[in-house]
Amino acid sequence: MIRFNRVTKEYARGGLALDDVSFEIKKGEFCFLTGHSGAGKSTLLRLIHMADRPSKGEVRVSGYSSERIRAKEIAMLRRKIGYVFQDFRLLQNRTAADNVGFALEVTGATPAVIRAKVGRLLAQVGLAAKAEALPSELSGGEQQRVAVARALAHDPLVLLADEPTGNLDERATHGIYELIKSINAAGTAVLFATHNLDLVRHSPNLRLIELDHGKLVYDSAGSA
């Protein structure tokens, strides 16, 4: 479903971010993405989201190729990709429910559909009781749950998580990790970028890809 074919990404100012990277992620797979800061994890996720294009090589996501995709198709592709970040990226002046609903609203869903779906999503992430709370009234873990609910709004094929537990304490980290694993269990592929090696060690049977200075140096699936 996601395939990197000899992908190199070089920034005019930042230099080489990814160097000849190839791998594939199948439908419903869970994969950790590790590496030190600046190893290229975020660049790799941005390439999947088509926020950047490779300097060399090809990225294919759900039938779309980085070489041929048009602006309008990028919007359509992004509805199949959920994305969560370390800093949550919630709209501070909107409630938890409105933050989730916003993702549906801006893709043209009707108010009735939005209401029903937002209720279901907030229940799924365990925040049904806090639908009307503003982000500033929620803990870090709760804010990340809202962000996860928003990422699931379009029933994505894959969830990209860019250091989703980076700002959270141990308990909240565990909660978010379990939530994301349950989402994967329901069939959504997950690419989980982290440098929290404790999480990785606790799940030795999950796939792991490691980047170092832009190179793919380890892939537990053996395709490196």
Partner: peptide
């Protein structure tokens, strides 16, 4: 700008934005 970047993130088309 935050709203716009989130609209982009969740797949709103440029015309819609």
């Amino acid at each position: 700008r935050d709203e716009i970047s989130i609209m982009r993130l969740v797949g709103a088309t440029d015309g819609f934005i």
